[in-house]
């Protein structure tokens, strides 16, 4: 009945550093369940992150874990995967880490279609530094550096990933825990670059500034504004206004994976 998370968590590491109500813990549980579903040998699994609240995730998990520099997770992970393709590589991090300072590494990892699973926790804000706006902060929203409302336009991370060439792109929210592990497991099994965007809540630095009275409000907001990709075609444009699509948004099983492509390079070089 009760799920055994303890065997995946390093002894003595809980409670974690995240604030009360922060969705990152929900995502971490989903990741553990997905890793169990895929029966990943933790010795052969690298979990790589950048910097930020979400990037603290690897430290809790019993595996080969690599907490790198701001935005660089995908590039470090590329080196790990290239050098040892037999390892399962999972990347995780937040929206600012992955799409602002790490945007270049993110899109090029997608373009190469290297076999890794990137769990991107999008909580619409830079949490660790105290709530500055990120590329995903909604236009008009209040952040510590947008006191008059955010003038910037927003990245749609999943569309960015699809456009850049990732071959498995899915989105869910922290309010849909069962979907989190299902989608991450699909991503891990997919041969190629998988992006799992999890819309997440930051009650401490985003919620309280933007008229969410509590974390419950934020979770309800995530639930109420999610539309499954299966339900969306039956809805009008009006009904879809302001909603986010969840589920598997894109899948391509034809495009060659990067390490396999390089294995062909090795074959050619050695037969020349």
């Amino acid at each position: 009945m009760a799920y055994d998370y303890d065997k995946s968590i390093r002894p003595g590491k809980l409670p974690h550093i995240w604030c009360p109500g922060c969705g990152h813990g929900i995502v971490m549980k989903g990741l553990i369940r997905a890793m169990d579903t895929c029966e990943l040998d933790r010795k052969n699994t690298a979990i790589v992150s950048g910097i930020g609240c979400a990037s603290r995730l690897p430290g809790y998990l019993d595996a080969c874990t690599l907490h790198t520099a701001h935005g660089r997770g995908a590039a470090f992970a590329t080196g790990v995967k290239m050098a040892k393709p037999e390892m399962t590589v999972i990347c995780c991090g937040g929206d600012g880490d992955g799409t602002a300072i790490g945007g270049n590494h993110f899109i090029h990892a997608c373009r190469r279609n290297i076999d890794m699973t990137y769990v991107l926790m999008n909580n619409f804000i830079y949490g660790m530094t105290g709530g500055q706006f990120s590329p995903c902060t909604p236009t008009g929203a209040i952040a510590s550096t947008t006191p008059y409302g955010n003038p910037d336009q927003v990245f749609d991370i999943s569309k960015l990933a699809i456009g850049a060439g990732a071959t498995f792109v899915a989105r869910t929210t922290a309010a849909h825990p069962r979907e989190i592990d299902k989608l991450i497991a699909q991503g891990i099994k997919h041969k190629g670059m998988s992006i799992i965007e999890v819309l997440d809540d930051c009650p401490t630095t985003y919620g309280r500034r933007n008229k969410f009275r509590s974390v419950i409000d934020m979770m309800k907001h995530l639930k109420a504004n999610s539309v499954s990709v299966k339900a969306a075609p039956k809805m009008t444009a009006e009904q879809l206004e302001g909603k986010f699509l969840t589920g598997v948004l894109f899948e391509d099983t034809e495009k060659p994976e990067y390490c396999e492509q390089y294995a062909n390079v090795i074959k050619k070089a050695q037969s020349a």
């Binding site: 009945m1 009760a2 809980l14 974690h16 009360p20 990152h24 813990g25 922290a174």
Partner: peptide
């Protein structure tokens, strides 16, 4: 009713539902 919502949604690994 063992729907597991509490355990699944607890971000802090603080609640377990046993049979």
């Amino acid at each position: 009713i063992k729907c597991m919502q509490c355990e699944l949604l607890c971000p802090d690994f603080a609640i377990k539902v046993h049979d």
